[in-house]
Amino acid sequence: MKTDYKTIVSDGLWSNNGVLSMLLGLCPAMAMTTSATNGFGMGLATAVVMAASSLLVALFRQRITQEIRIPVFILIVASMVTLVDLAMNAWMHELYKVLGLFIPLIVSNCLPLARLEAFAAKQPPLAALVDGLFMGIGFTLALTSVGAVREILGSGTLFADASLLLGPAFKAIEMRILPADMGVLMMILPPGGFLITGLMVVVKRLFDLRAGREIQMGGAHSAPA
């Protein structure tokens, strides 16, 4: 069976984007997008977990029987999360402090489990790794863009504190878009999270419509009434 990597990549980045199409993993997508940097960091941690656990599941897919698969998946994700948690605590401590609770909560994020069950459990390791990685990158992109919009509107900056959180090399991307007193505080508070995420889904639908694709109504609401 030939694996179509191009579809996997485009699915992960755009058409099946975890947050904007499938509406999975909403908790970190709103809690950790008060700035673009936070969103990027959160997305990165999730991407690493997804790639690693997809690879592991695909490697052991013949041994994991149908009955025990969900508990095994959860344990694999939980171990990967623990590893990421410890690694970030050691090497990216500032970011670790910002993300806090939401790193262990990657375990209960719907997205990794959904991908493991839908893809990694049935595919060869390489394809699973690519799928996990690009789903994770798609997630990162969505989080970073939601974070960027909220940050620009809320505090007028973009990637503020990137050098502090991600490392000195990222000093160059710190930007100020609007003057300091122009920010709408509401945008970085919880209501802004809901509002901007909702509007981002609309923007994605607009793009899909222009490209002549079917709009995905997505999420739990899609059930026919």
Binding site: L189, P190, G198, V201, G218, H221
Partner: peptide
């Protein structure tokens, strides 16, 4: 509106609710 149907309008309503809870 069709573009907002389903989740997006839900998010926007939730945003108003969050404002109230603030």
């Amino acid at each position: 509106p069709r573009l907002f149907a389903g989740p997006p309008i839900g998010f926007i309503v939730a945003s108003l609710l969050a404002m109230a809870f603030m």
